[in-house]
Structure formats: C-alpha cells, structure tokens
Nucleic acid binder design. Structure first.
Lengths: 136, 136
DNA sequence: CCGATCTGTAATATTTATCATTGTAGTATA
DNA sequence: TATACTACAATGATAAATATTACAGATCGG
C-alpha cells in the first residue's frame, strides 16, 4: 500500500487535534518523520478535494475544512492511492492464451476487490482514527 | 500489490491448462514475460504448500497437485503477499501522540482490511480464473 | 515597502526495492 | 555419462520511492 495514504491519514489526524490554528508542513513532517516537501505534496491533493484549507505566508499552514466524520479512509484512499491494489503485470506473451488475457482478467477481479475494500474503509472516518489514537 | 501474486496465478492457470504433462519454468516464464529463476522461486513456495508438484531432470517441471477449485486467490495471496496491504509507515516521532500511536492504529485497521479482502478473494479459485480466461 | 515566514512546484540526487543474470550443485532420464 | 531439468545463493542492473535543493509567489508585521 502506497505510503501517501498513510501520510494523508497522519496529517489529517494531526490537523484534527489542532482545530484552532494553522499547522505548518514542517510541524507535520516532524511528527510523521518525512520531508516537509512531501507533506506539502500530499496535502495539496487533500486541499484540491476540499478536505483542508491552506494559507501561505507568516502564520500560514494547513487546517481542517470539514467535520472529522465527513472524511473517511475510503475518501483518502481514492485520492491518494486509487488503483494501488492492481497488481502490475509484466508484459506477457500475446501468443499464449493465458499471457494474452491474464492482465484483463486480473484487472476485472481487482476492480471488484478495490470496491470491496472500499466498503470496509468507508466505516473509518478521521473521527474514529482520532478516538483510536486517544485510546492508546 | 506484489507481483509474485500475479505470477503465481499466471503460473497456476497455465498449469491448469496442461494437466497431463510437466511444464518447465522456461515455458512458464515465456508466457509470463519474466525470468525463469523468478518462476522457480515463486513456484517453490506453491510447492511447499502442496498446490503443485515438481520434478527435476529431463522431462521434469511443474504440475498441478490439486483440483482447480481447491485453490483460491486468497490461498495464493496468503502465501505470496500476506501483509502486502499494510502501509509501510516511516519511523515517526515518538514524542508526538499521533506519531507514537499511528502505526499501531493503522496496523489494526489494515489487519481488518486484509481479512475483508480475503472474503472477496475466497470466491475466486483457479477454476474460475481458467473459465474467465477461456471466455475472452 | 522590506524582511521574514510560509505554501507551491519543479528539478535533481539519493536511497531502497524489484528484478534479471550468472554460477554452481543436485536430480532424473535415456 | 551426457543432457535437461529444479534449487538456490550471490551479484548486478533497473526502476520506483523518497529526500534534497532551489526558487517563485503569498502573507504578515514592522
């Protein structure tokens, strides 16, 4: 699984705990253990989809834009990792009935798998994640 | 998703279509478009779990050991890719409540996700895959 | 208006993971 | 005993993920 997905969840959870002030990419990066530029890249996706707001300049940073329960892990998956479940087949032999058709058969099966996973991920929102973090 | 998973399915499907003779790693590799050594590596896992048999020497190779309907994609996933769904978190900051606990929260969630995926993959056996290939 | 502090983004370098290749030993067959 | 295989380890090449650097643009407070 794509680690942008993890980073997005981590970032949103952190923002959820700082509802009243802007958090900088450096602050988030420090918590997540990655480079600030990566955080900005991932968060710019989340911003594009309206989950967070950002502001440049002094005192700027990122802040949650919705209710915590309005953002599910499935939403985040779709933005950061759609298609990640698909196995990447090598170029196989078109002369062989298996080589020629395996890719499209697996594609179909994994499309279903991704939707099935979606049903599971929909049940977890950032609200749940925050409460799981707090339980620890 | 790990491509060993794909290779295993590809190989088993090919073996399913050659029920009466041994198939060599070179033959399978040609169909799958990868190096024979990789095929042998993946197939040795499947052999260890009793799904196929192998024989060395002239006229040797690999052959299916069970009924096609006895091998599901979930079985293959567990052998080749268990844990692949788990996002690989970077070392995060232990000083921060989020950094300190995110990994274990995500681990739990993705354990559930993998089991949920399992329910889906159990419905596809090599028999189904073969028939999907033939439909094309 | 100027300097400091941010985001936004592209370009490049570095690290890591994946995969191919080579080599060698062992087994079966004819 | 020569040939055709698997088995497996070790090394090398390639591709993907990630960090780093660099710079432009926004915002704020003197």
């Amino acid at each position: 699984m794509n680690s942008d997905f993890t980073l997005a969840i981590h970032s949103l959870t952190l923002l959820a705990l700082q509802p009243d002030r802007m958090s900088t990419s450096e602050y988030i990066a420090e918590s997540a253990g990655v480079h600030p530029v990566r955080i900005r890249k991932v968060l710019s996706l989340l911003k594009k989809h309206g989950f967070i707001k950002s502001k440049e300049g002094t005192g700027g940073g990122f802040i949650f834009a919705l209710e915590l329960s309005e953002v599910s892990l499935w939403d985040i998956y779709k933005i950061t990792s759609e298609g990640a479940l698909q196995p990447k087949c090598p170029e196989s032999n078109e002369q062989c009935i298996v080589g020629a058709n395996m890719q499209s058969v697996l594609f179909t099966i994994f499309l279903g798998a991704e939707n099935h996973l979606g049903e599971y991920l929909k049940d977890y929102t950032i609200k749940e994640v925050v409460s799981l973090i707090n339980q620890k």
